[in-house]
Amino acid sequence: MSTRAMRSAATFAIAASRARALWRLAILLIAGSALAGAAIQLIDPATSRIAANVLFTALVAITLAYANGDAARTDPFAAVEEAAPLFGRQRARANAVFPAAVVVGCAAAQYIWPISHASTFPWEAFVVNAAAALTALPIALSVPLRSRRNGVLYAIFALAAALLCASFGGAVGNSTQSDLAAVLASIGVAIMIGVLALRQYGEALARYDPLPRST
């Protein structure tokens, strides 16, 4: 097996370990997102609706990031990750895979009600919502590694980043009168903030000195 394939195997193994630990929570969050999405459709005007969608998905991302960190401390599989010969950035990427997939699922689930009533999928709103949540997620992944006060600050920062991503997309969309431009702008912000935040999370993991759980 090539070195690259072996590294991918480590990423897949860690992502699968998180999925084993968190699948019940993931289903609960996706179901909750579908219900919340239906309730959010009652909000008027449309800009407030989009903001509500984005805030909800960002909160889901923060919840999932916290649960992900907790699983990494308590899961018997994950307990050996600290001793594994992996770089911080590899662990960061692997840790983000499962929560990212769930967050995108939650973003999509919020539009089940509109699909069932209008028979069209509001893909622009979905992409902006998912991009905003994926902006918040890598920032929120650092929350479990921080002290309580700093953790709260990181969570607020993650929410702010999600709103920034969505509002930037909205502003570009309004000024150009193009949904595609709004979507591309949101994706651009998500990539810029997400990559930096994921890199920083990897650095934090590499420097983190976990004390034994029994203490």
Binding site: R7, A9, A10, F12, A13, S17, P76, F77, A84
Partner: peptide, 16 residues
């Protein structure tokens, strides 16, 4: 207690 085969597979992936 994790399943031994799954646990060894997991460690094999992490340690290449």
């Amino acid at each position: 207690l994790p399943d031994p085969d799954a646990y060894f597979s997991y460690r094999a992936a992490l340690w290449e």
